[in-house]
Amino acid sequence: MKKILLYCLLTGLTISTVFAQKDVDAKKILNQVSAKYRSYNVVKADFTFTYEDKQASTKDSQSGTLISKSKTNKYRVSIYSPDNATTEQEIISDGKTQWTYIKKDKEVEISDVDNSNESLNPAQIFTIYEKGYKYVYNGDEKIDGKTYQVIDLTPEDEKKPFFKIRLSIDKAKKQIYSAVIFDKNGSRYTYIVRSFTPNVKVPESTFTFDKKDHPGVELVDLR
């Protein structure tokens, strides 16, 4: 579960299929979401991540928090224990260096941030459609009295292991509520945004890993 979650966050939900086209209505909605997100300096999003393995009939969930400064490609993702009492994992970037920390292993991997078009980091999670994707608007749906606009994304690269991302966008707020990634092997990865706070005040130290705060942790430099 831990490795799967890190994999999904670091690969940026890459997917694949050949059926969708770039639809005018979908583009209009996505542009509204992107424009609103980019108007903020720093955002904080609390989310729930669920992994479903259809073949093994298993389902696991964890919660986490994303703090993102998209204009400078900085982010911090914290994944919590099942009881939400402690932080189990963190992915941190200052825009140039990325630290991937797993508390149980007492290890942090250090790598360069991948800024290529093949990569998508957590700071870009709300603007994932802008490069290399096709999209189609599938109408609206109501959940608990709220209206969500449903858009399917597919990449132009057909070699990826996923075949679809389904976004549900809060029609009133123009914010992404959920993202469901459909794997070719039948598995599903679901992110639900439980709260979204724009323009939060955080120190710059939020986007770096300080070894002094983590005594006994081994640094593994992969650069």
Rank of each mutant, 00 (worst) to 15 (best):
L10I: 14
G12K: 08
L13S: 03
T14K: 07
T14Q: 09
I15V: 13
I15G: 01
I15Q: 01
T17V: 10
T17Y: 10
V18A: 14
Q21Y: 13
Q21W: 15
V24F: 12
D25L: 14
A26I: 05
A26N: 04
K27H: 13
I29P: 00
L30E: 07
L30K: 00
N31T: 10
N31E: 12
Q32L: 12
V33W: 02
S34F: 08
K36V: 06
R38H: 14
S39G: 15
N41P: 03
N41L: 09
N41H: 11
V42C: 02
V42Q: 00
D46W: 09
D46N: 09
T48C: 14
A56L: 15
A56I: 15
T58R: 14
T58D: 15
D60L: 09
D60G: 06
L66M: 10
I67M: 02
K69T: 00
K69C: 00
K69I: 02
K69V: 04
K71N: 13
T72F: 00
N73G: 07
N73K: 14
K74W: 00
V77R: 00
V77T: 02
I79K: 00
Y80R: 04
Y80A: 05
Y80S: 05
Y80K: 02
S81M: 02
P82I: 01
P82D: 03
D83K: 06
D83A: 10
N84W: 07
N84H: 05
T87N: 07
E88H: 05
E88A: 14
E88I: 06
Q89R: 03
Q89P: 00
I92S: 01
I92M: 06
S93C: 10
S93Y: 05
D94T: 03
G95T: 07
G95S: 10
K96C: 05
K96E: 13
Q98V: 15
Q98G: 11
I102W: 01
I102S: 03
K103S: 13
K104D: 08
K104F: 07
D105S: 09
K106Q: 11
E107N: 12
E107R: 10
V108D: 08
S111R: 11
D112P: 03
D112E: 12
D114G: 11
D114Q: 05
S116P: 03
N117G: 11
E118T: 12
E118G: 09
E118P: 08
E118W: 13
S119E: 15
L120T: 00
N121D: 15
N121K: 12
A123L: 08
Q124N: 15
I125T: 03
I125W: 01
I125S: 01
F126V: 02
Y129P: 01
E130R: 13
